[in-house]
Each structure stands twice: as C-alpha cells, then as structure tokens.
Simulated assay, not measured.
Amino acid sequence: MSTQSFSLDDLKRILLESAGADENIDLDGDILDTDFEELSYESLAILETCGRIERDYGISLDDSVVTEAKTPRALLEIVNTQLAESAQAA
C-alpha cells in the first residue's frame, strides 16, 4: 500500500498559492522551525492553507491545527500523521 506524504515543498507551494508571500521573507531558506508569524502568515492564512491541504489531499484536519501548528515542521507532522491514518483506514 502506498502512503502519500506531504513535504516542505508541498507546504511552500500551497502557502504561496493560498496566501501569497511577504517579499521580505525567503521561503527557500531554513524555515522548518520558524514560527508562521515570523514568516508573515497569520492564523487566517494558516486556516486557508489547511483548507487547501484538506481538499488537495482528501484528509480532515482538526480546527485546533491552526493554533497548535506554530511552525512548518509541526504542520508537516500533523498532515503526515493524518495521511498515514487515512491510508491505514482505506
């Protein structure tokens, strides 16, 4: 059984498509442990990003993800856990 994964590149693409990017922020740098607020993404942008992830990857993310996932690494972990659970349930 193939398990779909969600990468940092996937997250960057969705962030850019959903919420754009501050021209002063370099998403190509080491951003895994940088707070979303430092990257100029507020809770509304993360909420929109989570909605896009749900649609694109066919998973359901709890509303608390917006407040719990403070960094790209945390969001990647949550999404990949959901993807793995979804694959096991299938």
Rank of each mutant, 00 (worst) to 15 (best):
T3R: 13
E23Q: 15
D56Q: 14
A90G: 12
G29K: 05
E68P: 02
P72L: 02
E38Q: 13
D22H: 09
A89T: 02
A45V: 05
E23R: 14
Q82T: 07
G51E: 05
A69M: 09
D10C: 04
K12A: 05
A90P: 01
E42H: 15
L27H: 01
S60F: 02
T34A: 12
R13Q: 14
D33R: 12
S5M: 07
E42N: 12
S18Q: 14
T3G: 11
L61A: 06
L11A: 04
R73A: 15
S64F: 10
V65N: 05
L75G: 04
D56K: 12
G29Y: 01
D30C: 01
I53D: 00
L75T: 04
S40F: 05
L83A: 00
I59A: 06
D62W: 02
Y41T: 04
L11K: 04
P72E: 01
D9I: 09
T81A: 12
M1A: 13
L11G: 04
E77V: 02
L39H: 06
F6W: 05
E42A: 14
T49V: 15
D26S: 07
Y41W: 06
D22E: 10
A89H: 03
A21V: 12
R73P: 05
L11C: 03
S64M: 08
L61C: 08
V65K: 08
R13H: 10
S2Y: 11
S5C: 09
L16E: 14
Q82F: 02
Y41P: 02
S7V: 08
F36N: 00
E54S: 03
E38V: 06
L61E: 09
I53S: 02
R55M: 08
T71K: 14
L61R: 09
L44D: 09
I14L: 11
S5Q: 13
L47K: 08
E17P: 00
L76K: 05
E37H: 10
L27W: 01
E48H: 14
R55G: 00
L15F: 07
E17H: 08
Q88F: 06
D56I: 03
T3F: 09
T81G: 10
S64L: 10
G51A: 08
D26V: 04
I31H: 00
E77D: 12
L27C: 03
S40A: 15
N24G: 12
A21T: 11
E85A: 07
V79D: 01
L44H: 07
L76D: 08
V65Y: 10
E85R: 04
D28H: 05
F36G: 01
A87L: 00
D22K: 06
S64K: 09
R52H: 00
S64V: 12
